[in-house]
Design a protein around this nucleic acid. Structure first.
Length: 667
RNA sequence: GGGGUUGUAGCUCAGUCGGUUAGAGUGCCAGCCUGUCACGCUGGAAGUCGCGGGUUCGAGCCCCGUCAGCCCCGCCA
């Protein structure tokens, strides 16, 4: 098909903006054909641009035959420039923003054709591998256009927010140094320095701290970070971080800068949230919610029920009560008729889930229409039941689930079931207030989890490792524990949590060399090692480092939650699959051997040198040093007639040498 | 590294107990159609049943392996 040129065509309006006010005006529009409806001598076409959709029309009576023929040749996703007059429609479409008007065509340019798309843009259920292979088409879909627009809006609001607060945006290196602690690094081989590597940043952590030493006081960067770890629905190997660092601040100061930003961002998607957000110590979060990132849309709390079973006939529970706190009985109580109506089959399914999370079983007590049903009913005297009901706060119907074990075990199981079960029950629960208590869908529940432990014991490394990172300040009240009981030492570290997702994390940093040394010592990094790995940081701390702290927000995850989608790929233009591939570009891919050699990742190939007493040169390149070696070899081999072919391996070892007869001038 | 799940026409899917020529909707192509807007009607083309092997008289279906997508555990300072 012969294409038209854009030429001097100038767009006069955005397609989505046209209204009855425009009737009578001649307009020039650009965009893609969403669909043609050809009724024979009357043809409709929906033209889409970034701002909306408008209907074009032409008919046999009024339109130029050539124009009509051209219009009929248009297929979905052709790129068009259209000129026409805005007219009120004969039959209006109330489902369309521009549904009152249409454009009576007076001119049409086909700027480009389009092959039939591999998948329909309207369809929601298209396979994700296909969508990722043709991501440029996928991004034409309304949902992704909306998501990318939202993301852009969030980034702009964020920049403006920090700009108003006098933060400075500083770029930090992408080619940087591998950090020994934490996630696996993506490595970049250095061509100039054989055998050495850059690492892509997991975060600009040290740089932003050094910028505080430099005196910038308030730093912000929206930057890409990289972690070579396995993916999840909310985790990509490269991701964007809103990176913040401030001098002369306490934890509350950092939080006080972030909270109003969250209020603004929530507002973009019509959510009213109020600052300050609740602060929840890590210990309470684990005790009440079994998670360090609790979803507070669910109001149910884990309760300790150990003491109730001190004299129980149920051995499992009594043994825990007698374990002196080593093991406990903890419970979740879900009120409501939906909970009381849980079937045996559903409870069995829950038990399976619990077992997969490492629980031995899932004892339950259910108060339904027919009274009490329980997996340990035979051990429950009427008096015990009454105590249990009082303790758990049972009124009317409901379901209690129990877990027995160490705190870590029971937290994990109950923390997970808390949200899962509550969400399921809320779906069926008829009582509005109970439903809200179970799961208040459609709200944003921010909170800060604070007072994280500074260190945790790593079985793998047989030493303590930093929970957050090794630059996190110990809690001032716990400073002595660093040496006496490191596991109990709290950190001045805080996570921002939204609806069960960690959307940010930060800490007050260590700003004096002595504390930093104590920290390194606590995690088994010796003085020499600290010097090699973090020498520049230790130096910096020695030259007037101000007290400082900050935080990083996961922009992708935040936008995901704002967009109300359950996958981070939906808010990233060109994401990787869960196997860390790009299906569109097929990255990562193999590279030429030549490239590998340049990067010193493959040994240099064997090389044959033509050498002679008068001059020598390489036949196919080779290395200058080895040419000299080849010459030496041939002169030893044939002292009088030093000319020939010498093949050396990359280390200069002779693989083959032969003399050539006669003078060497013919080279 | 481990577990689960999916893979059939361009797309979304159905496919019974292992049994004749693997179907539907949609998209695509052609024709008709003056008020459509998921236009309608008629006709047509379209398949390496992810790939490889095995069992069987016979495999889309059963078995083994493998690849890819998705979810989870480990991992993610």
């Amino acid at each position: 098909m012969k294409l038209d040129r854009l030429g001097d065509f100038q767009r006069t309006h955005r397609n989505g903006d046209l209204r009855l006010d425009h009737v009578g005006q001649t307009v020039r529009l650009l965009g893609w054909c969403r669909r043609v409806r050809n009724l024979g001598s009357l043809v409709f076409l929906d033209l889409r641009d970034r701002w909306g959709l408008v209907q074009l029309v032409a008919n046999e009576e009024t339109a130029d035959p050539e124009l009509l023929a051209k219009l009929k040749a248009v297929r979905s996703e052709f790129v068009l420039a259209a000129e026409g007059v805005v007219a009120e429609r004969e039959s209006k479409n109330p489902n369309m923003a521009t549904g009152d008007v249409e454009i009576r065509l007076t001119g049409l340019r086909i700027l480009n054709t389009a092959a039939p798309l591999p998948f329909p843009l309207e369809d929601e259920g298209v396979g994700e591998d296909l969508r990722l292979t043709y991501r440029f088409l996928d991004l034409r879909r309304e949902q992704l256009q909306r998501n990318m627009l939202l993301r852009s809006e969030v980034a702009n609001l964020t920049r403006n927010h920090f700009r108003e607060l006098d933060f400075i945006d500083v770029e930090t290196p992408i080619l940087t140094k591998s950090t020994p602690e934490g996630a696996r690094d993506y490595l970049v081989p250095s061509r100039v320095h054989a055998g050495e590597f850059f690492a892509l940043p997991q975060s600009p952590q040290l740089f932003k701290q050094l910028l505080q030493v430099s005196g910038f006081e308030r730093y912000i960067q929206i930057c890409r970070c990289f972690r070579d770890e396995d993916l999840r629905a909310d985790r990509q190997p490269e991701f964007t971080q809103v990176d913040v660092e401030m001098s002369f601040v306490r934890q509350e100061d950092v939080q006080g800068v972030i909270e109003p930003l969250m209020v603004k961002l929530a507002k973009v998607v019509g959510q009213d949230v109020t600052a300050p957000f609740p602060r929840l110590p890590y210990r309470d979060a684990m005790e009440w919610y079994g998670s360090d990132k609790p979803d507070l849309r669910c109001g149910i709390r884990i309760q300790d029920a150990t003491a109730l079973f001190a004299a129980s006939g149920f051995n499992l529970f009594r043994a825990a009560a007698e374990s002196q706190g080593q093991r406990r009985v903890r419970a979740l109580y879900f009120p409501g008729e939906a909970a009381g109506a849980m079937s045996r089959k559903q409870l069995d399914a829950l038990q399976e889930t619990a077992k997969q999370m490492g629980a031995g079983g899932l004892p339950y007590a259910k108060w339904g229409k027919d009274g009490l049903a329980s997996s340990f009913k035979k051990f429950l005297e009427p008096a015990d039941e009454a105590t249990l009901k009082t303790h758990l706060g049972v009124e009317g119907e409901g379901l209690a689930l129990f877990a027995v074990g160490t705190d870590a075990q029971t937290s994990r199981v109950l923390g997970d079931l808390r949200v899962k079960v509550a969400a399921d029950l809320a779906f069926f629960e008829k009582d509005e207030s109970i439903r809200r208590a179970l799961m208040d869908e459609g709200t944003f529940q921010f909170l800060w989890v604070v007072d994280f432990p500074l260190l945790e014991w790593s079985e793998e490394n047989e030493r303590f490792v930093a929970c957050h990172h090794p630059f996190t300040s110990p809690h001032p009240d716990d400073m002595d524990l660093l040496e006496t009981d490191p596991g109990q030492c709290r950190a001045v570290a805080y996570d921002l949590v939204l609806n069960g997702f960690e959307v940010g994390g930060g800490s007050i940093r260590i700003h004096d060399a002595e504390t930093q040394s104590r920290m390194f010592r606590a995690i088994g990094i010796g003085e020499a090692e600290a010097r090699t790995k973090f020498g520049f940081l230790l130096d910096a701390l020695a030259f007037g480092a101000p007290p400082h702290g900050g935080l990083a927000l996961g922009l992708d995850r935040l936008v995901m939650l704002l967009a109300g989608v359950d996958n981070i790929r939906e808010v990233i233009a060109f994401p990787k699959t869960s196997q860390a591939r790009c299906l569109m570009t097929n990255a990562p891919g193999p590279v030429d051997e030549r490239q590998l050699r340049e990067l010193h990742l493959l040994p240099e190939a064997r090389q044959t040198y033509r050498v002679g007493a008068v001059f020598f040169e390489s036949a196919e390149g080779g290395s200058a040093e080895l040419r000299g070696q080849a010459l030496q070899q041939i002169s030893q081999l044939t002292p009088r007639q030093a000319q020939g072919l010498v093949t050396l391996d990359p280390n200069g070892q002779i693989l083959d040498a032969q003399t050539l007869s006669g003078p060497t001038f013919e080279f």
